[in-house]
Design a protein around this nucleic acid. Structure first.
Length: 492
RNA sequence: GUCCCCUUCGUCUAGAGGCCUAGGACUCCAGGUUUUCAUCCUGGCAACGGGGGUUCGAAACCCCCAGGGGACGCCA
């Protein structure tokens, strides 16, 4: 039985890279008549949020990548949220300890940092030096009794070569000496990714792991753990990483990476999926427009190319256009359009903002057009008003963007509070402060109330517009960004 | 720095030793259709990273180099 999974961590916006892995995992499972599951990897207590988990679930459902088992729908191998499986990991960590495959480690962060720095300086791979590996049971007990914090690390052979099989690349050889004695259980008692993923994939009977290439280097650790437990290793399929136009790993600083951004911009889920499918994979017949079902029918991992593809929004846009005009008839188009923006929920959000400002319906057009625009059509001239200082505007926009990228509740009052506080910290009148934001967000010097508008637009589009405005104003150099960053930090 | 992965037009890709004077698509340019624009159609620009092998024959196989990317966390 083929069983695949996608296992995102609920930190921040749901990423197109997650959708990419989910798509390939889904296709592989479905093609083989197997199951696809969703597991939430929330073992990082500091960064995981329920909000993010919900956003991931919503985004993947929007795309139509539905799972057979998961935290929202249950299943026989649950729970599917790692924070709810703590006793399970504890049991297996205990087992490793008993069989001498793991050990307690009391090293401090400072010591580890120093050790790594020295190793790197000596041209070695940074790796735990094994100081605590030889501690006796008695020593461990004593130190614990004395209240010392500790973690559990896995043991790794000091010699030899580990060979992991990748379904796309064949054998990959990595010397054990290169492999770190990974922490398996943190001081807070939570497992790290490495322990949790192995235990869960085995218990959930995952047969094929489709994940990003970034994981290749930790595959030996996982294989070692499978060996320690006496479990069968699943097939490994490492997908190439999606990249920014500058070839670095796809990141939100350089490219919109959030699935909801594309949803809010008015892309069709079918088109996004289709585009993701053509990155690193192609239909045997060379068709560029294909549906999820087409992909499942024709899927074949031997058609995956290994060069990491650049996520090119221009081509995605063209593809979306094809779906819009070639696949949808007029009824379908109308249905999708109202689903996107002219739905009742959205209108009910917008109406309170414009009702007082309108005499006849025909006044409405120019007032609300910015709610349905992607990026407003802006030029530097639009920021040229009485008393305008570009330098200052850039600062306002960049600082506001950072504020909005932070952990802020996307509600009118929270946004108002945050921005007003920022204006005060910058010693600016709120009116002057808000002006460039109005222009950036609405494309006009006047618009319905800003904070409420931001809420209607949503975080993705709002941030996108601020970035767009910054670019219109000439962009911010790396050097300047650094300077602004330190200034921003002193303010907040 | 150490280790790992990758390498065909600017970008996404086809290519499983002869069908390759390397095909398609996006972008861009030129032309046509269209009252405008868009769509659509036609055409054009543009690539096998370099060097060694193997072979009658290499974009494809092997080796070296270079370039790019990734990993080196009590993040995932």
């Amino acid at each position: 039985m083929v069983r695949t999974r996608v296992a995102p961590s609920p930190t921040g916006d749901p990423h197109v890279g997650t959708a990419y892995m989910a798509l390939f995992s889904y296709c592989y499972a479905k093609q083989h008549g197997g199951q696809f599951l969703l597991r939430i990897e929330d073992t990082d207590t500091a960064r995981s949020t329920a909000k993010s988990e919900q956003a991931i679930i919503d985004s993947l459902h929007w795309l139509g990548l539905d799972w057979d088992e998961g935290p929202d729908c249950g299943g026989s191998k649950g729970p599917y949220r790692q924070s709810e499986r703590l006793p399970v990991y504890q049991e297996y960590a205990e087992q490793l300890l008993e069989n001498d495959h793991a050990f307690h480690c009391f090293c401090t962060a400072e010591r580890l940092q120093q050790m790594r720095a020295e190793q790197k300086q000596n041209g070695q791979t940074a790796r735990y030096d094994g100081l605590c590996a030889g501690l006796s049971a008695q020593q461990v007990t004593e130190r614990k009794a004395a209240g010392a914090e500790s973690v559990i690390r896995m043991k790794v052979p000091s010699e030899g070569v580990c060979i992991v099989e990748d379904a796309l690349r064949g054998s990959i050889e990595i010397e054990y000496a290169q492999i770190d004695m990974q922490v398996l259980v943190k001081a807070d008692g939570f497992p790290t990714y490495h322990l949790a993923v192995v235990v869960d994939d085995h218990l959930m009977e995952i047969s094929h792991i489709i994940r990003g290439e970034e994981w290749i280097n930790s595959a030996p650790k996982h294989q070692l753990l499978y060996g320690y437990f006496g479990w069968q290793m699943p097939e490994l399929i490492h997908m190439p990483l999606l990249r920014n136009p500058d070839k670095s790993k796809l990141s939100k600083r350089k490219n919109p990476t959030s699935i909801s951004f594309y949803k809010d911009m008015g892309y069709l889920p079918e088109a996004l999926l289709n585009y993701l499918g053509m990155l690193g994979w192609s239909m045997p017949g060379g068709e560029e427009r294909f549906s999820l079902d087409d992909m499942i029918d024709q899927f074949d991992i031997s058609r995956i190319s290994l060069g990491a593809p650049v996520f090119d929004v221009t081509k995605l846009k063209w593809l979306n256009g094809r779906w819009l005009r070639e696949v949808l008839d007029e009824d379908g188009f109308a249905a999708r359009l109202s689903e996107w923006v002219y739905n009742r929920d959205k209108l009910m959000q917008i109406i309170p903002l414009v009702k007082e400002r309108v005499d006849v319906f025909s006044d409405l057009g120019k007032m609300i057009s910015f709610f349905v625009e992607g990026m407003p059509d802006l030029g530097p001239d639009d920021f040229d008003y009485k008393g305008a200082v570009t330098e200052q505007q850039v600062k306002v926009l960049q600082f506001s963007l950072w504020l909005m990228e932070g952990d802020i509740d996307w509600h009118s009052s929270a946004l108002q509070q945050g921005l007003v506080a920022l204006a005060e910290a910058m010693d600016m009148k709120i009116r002057d402060f808000l002006k460039p934001l109005f222009i950036a967000v609405s494309g006009k010097p006047v618009s319905p109330p800003l904070f409420d508008s931001l809420v209607v637009l949503g975080p993705e589009i709002s941030r996108g517009r601020l970035r767009h405005a910054l670019a219109v104003l000439g962009g911010v150099s790396k050097k300047k960004l650094k300077k602004l960053d330190s200034e921003f930090k002193t303010l907040s």
